[in-house]
């Protein structure tokens, strides 16, 4: 018997049931980032998005994001019914431009973070989070 999910999944990978959403219904990651930047390019340096590779349950997924020097960070989920998740606006009293929260993901999709920097430029990061279907009532 193995106890780490990673090891067990490696053995039984073929049977893994993954909640995949139809590709055409998912807004593309690039489009969503452009939606925040107004079309301006976003570099990938200077922003860190922490999300699990596999969400134990799509109802409550811990996420953290950090972008030193950012004025605001917007979180998006391309495969949710509506992509907006949250926007963190940092005030002058903030010590670090970072935040952690817990989000809902409807299925396997990209979680996207777009940070607006003080000089008006943008940085962005995205990570695919697998959302699985459990065997006992989801």
């Amino acid at each position: 018997m193995t106890f780490t999910r990673r090891e067990t999944l490696a053995v039984g990978g073929a049977a893994l049931a993954v909640a995949a959403l139809p590709a055409k219904l998912m807004a593309s990651t690039a489009d969503l980032i452009a939606g925040v930047t107004g079309g301006a390019a976003a570099s990938s340096d200077g922003i860190e998005l922490t999300a699990p590779e596999i969400a134990e349950n799509g109802n409550t997924v811990p996420i953290a994001v950090s972008a030193p020097g950012a004025v605001a960070i917007t979180l998006l989920a391309g495969g949710n019914p509506t992509p907006g998740v949250a926007t963190f606006n940092f005030g002058s009293g903030s010590a670090e431009q970072s935040a952690s929260t817990r989000i809902r993901l409807a299925g396997t999709q990209d979680v996207i973070a777009v940070a607006k920097m003080a000089d008006g430029s943008f940085v962005a990061a995205a990570q695919t989070v697998k959302v699985t279907i459990g065997g006992c009532g989801g």
């Binding site: 106890f3 049977a15 893994l16 049931a17 699985t132 279907i133 065997g135 006992c136």
Partner: peptide
């Protein structure tokens, strides 16, 4: 059947 015979295995994507 699940909790004694199959703990540690996956039932779909649930880790029993």
């Amino acid at each position: 059947n699940c909790h004694e015979d199959n703990y540690g295995n996956m039932i779909r994507a649930d880790h029993l």
